[in-house]
Design a protein around this nucleic acid. Structure first.
Lengths: 203, 203
DNA sequence: CTCGTAGGCGTGTGGTGTACGCCTACGAAC
DNA sequence: GTTCGTAGGCGTACACCACACGCCTACGAG
């Protein structure tokens, strides 16, 4: 075995994250990543088969930072902690938000997080079809909230534009958007998730 | 004013939808759209400034088909109807799902739908910050559920792969994924949304 | 010291969005 | 009925993208 690999998947993921944090999702290209690593573009293909695989490595790196240890508290509390830790892990790297859903299945860290969520749901007494629905609802809500917050943050220009809408046609939307600008992302996420958990009937 | 416009925004949106339905999101390019319309690529730029604007037209066309009339029933029922009509409108054109979130702010149809949702929430007694949180939770859940169902349908290969995971490491995930394959998309969406609405405390 | 393996890379292909500038069909004004 | 400005329509060109392929070479085991 001559010439040991000079690059680990983790190094690739870290470099990709640097590019992502600096230049956003549009800035992440195989060329840019190769340059970040100080090598030629095609050299990357020794280690990854695909751009897709690069994205998968990034998602796995981010979700790998999520602590899954939530032994204490009510099921509702524990679910809230698991969800919020994803938000925290992602909030430092907003450009990965669009990648989360597309690479959810292939990322081991994502699967481990799913297993942790299911553990809480099961210990709360859910099984069978009810557990399927509950799990998917949690997935939809968490990833949906992250995307909504990413593409249209309450403090961003989109919401500001809605606040300027003609009150005769959009009275409630304009009023709500104006009010929304003072709500912090963390509060939005936490209280939104509390609504879902309340609906699940846990406590 | 010589030479009246030969192309309406609606014609462009309809043509783009045809391409989207036939070839998916990757198949939609300015070249492909121009060919669908029987004209040169650059001619399109007489009518749209951007590829982004084409996507916006498509989103608006799809959401424009959603009936917003929900006078009868409990708030919970009415919210459920509004949400499910979006699902139905989108289900015929799955390729637009990824576009919904990114063009939510600029689409008039999307704004009108938001106003309708807020009307129900307001009539149910919600105001101020509570209404902001509730509205965003509805957005997150609806768009999240659509995306989760699109990128990883319960009947699709992703879920099947999860079902094959080693039971010693992912016992609950494997079991739940196996059980999930029999749940229909419509049931998943409807019951998931019912969970959220229950959490909102409406009835 | 030799030699096969794997690392690294240069070139090329077919795709993308779109800036720019050209020709031309048209409809109103004279 | 001729003219003329406007807008429609398009061809070319550029910069970027992911990636196939094949080459050269550094290395480490034998």
């Amino acid at each position: 075995m001559p010439r040991p690999k000079s690059l680990t998947p983790d190094q690739i993921a870290t470099a990709a994250m640097s590019v992502l944090d600096r230049d956003g999702l549009d800035g992440l290209s195989m060329r840019a990543l190769a340059q970040e690593l100080g090598m030629g573009t095609m050299s990357l293909y020794r280690y990854v088969s695909d751009r897709d695989q690069v994205e998968e490595l990034v998602v796995d790196l981010v979700l790998g930072a999520v602590d899954l240890n939530v032994a204490r508290g009510t099921p509702a509390k524990r679910l809230g902690v698991l969800a919020d830790r994803v938000r925290v892990a992602v909030s430092g790297h907003p450009a990965v938000v669009p990648l989360l859903l597309t690479h959810r299945h292939s990322s081991p860290s994502s699967r481990r997080w799913g297993e942790a969520v299911l553990t809480v749901l099961t210990e709360a007494g859910l099984t069978g079809k009810r557990r399927v629905i509950a799990f998917r609802a949690v997935l939809a809500h968490v990833f949906g909230a992250l995307q909504v917050a990413h593409f249209g943050p309450l403090s961003g220009p989109g919401t500001a534009a809605l606040a300027e809408l003609p009150p005769e046609e959009f009275p409630l939307l304009a009023e709500t958007a104006a009010r929304a600008r003072t709500v912090a992302p963390e509060e939005e996420f936490r209280k939104g998730f509390e609504i879902l958990v309340r609906g699940l009937g846990l406590s």
